[in-house]
Design a protein around this nucleic acid. Structure first.
Lengths: 197, 197
DNA sequence: GTCTATACAGGGATAGAC
DNA sequence: GTCTATCCCTGTATAGAC
């Protein structure tokens, strides 16, 4: 299948999403125009519509792909029998994964309100499934007497919020390494849920 | 000072900010037009410029007023000598204050990137001063041996992120009251910083 | 103080040439 | 597959009547 001269279908699609992710993370969905995205890619605005039906779908795909990859990576982790080990693993995974993808994470959290109702529901479902993985770890820990928690759902949200907060300030050139930060946060998460130690 | 017929200068200004706050919280700064804000207030678009020099200043004022009021309310709290009591008070205050002002809080966190550099610096300074209040409580607790923390700055950010996360899901009609939620979070915050109890 | 009218730039999206 | 050209709408902001 010889490629036609001037044809870049195989690479342009991903490049459109990459450019959109970069620009939307920096300026916000509503503030970024299709013309800007096209300029970043190096094509004309009209050409974008070969790779996405519209701007809304472009945003949705960015968020959907991010959430699906996050879920897949989380599901691929081994499952420690000890609840404390499981929580520490989750905390380290969550922080590491989020630090590595600041743009995708930022968009996933900030642009929810710019999704159409149907697209919002789809992303919300993925988010809920991810949250459920932590909820399961905490519930298991409570059942085994490893954790002391008045409310698993509350604690789930509190821990996720705490861990995700790292992305608001972490910089690779800062005084702390990724692993130092992750270790410190895992420790705080364990203590917050009353881990018996 | 008789008021002219059809003149509402004393009330229209605040109503403009209230409408802007409502709309920006719901749709985002970039997605809300001056026409929409004017329609919400019940005036014509051009009339808004009697109350704000431009859209940017309107956003900045919303955020500045929110942060100044937050700082003032926090500063008005009594200062318990016991670090544990101080942290519990801070946690309860933070959650209560934020639950009561979901729109202002949402804007203060989500629209930072839409501020001009100078305005951003001003808001960031206010935010830093607020964060410093918690940092002081934690540092004092470490000095007195009440808390066990490897890094006060890290813990400050972690606790703030955890507490602020409540605004993402709390609804007044939910199964838990404000006070139940605040108590539970205050407990988790205390445990996260290794409070000796 | 509020209105209408308008200037002017830029938005998303499409049509049709190449 | 990409381009140019264009449609039509909406954006911020201002001018001048009342």
């Amino acid at each position: 299948m010889a490629r036609k001269a001037g044809s870049h279908a195989e690479t342009t699609g991903p490049r459109v999403r990459a450019a959109a992710q970069r620009l939307i993370a920096r300026h916000g969905y509503a503030a970024v125009s299709m013309r800007q995205i096209a300029a970043e890619v190096g094509v004309q605005a009209g050409a974008l519509y070969l790779y996405t039906p519209d701007k809304q779908t472009l945003l949705f795909d960015l968020m959907r792909i991010h959430m699906e990859e996050l879920l897949a990576a989380c599901a691929a982790l081994p499952a420690p029998a000890d609840p404390c080990a499981a929580l520490e693993q989750f905390a380290r995974f969550h922080i590491g994964y989020h630090i590595d993808r600041p743009e995708a994470v930022f968009i996933a959290y900030m642009e929810l309100r710019n999704l159409s109702p149907e697209n919002f529901a789809a992303i919300e479902d993925l988010r809920r499934r991810y949250e459920q993985r932590l909820a399961t770890i905490l519930a298991e820990g409570v059942a085994q007497g490893s954790f002391a928690l008045p409310d698993v759902r509350l604690a789930t949200r509190a821990v996720i919020a705490m861990l995700t907060g790292v992305t608001n300030w972490f910089r690779d050139m800062g005084p702390l390494t990724r692993d130092e930060v992750a270790a410190c946060y895992a420790d705080m998460a364990l203590r917050a849920v009353g881990a018996a130690r």
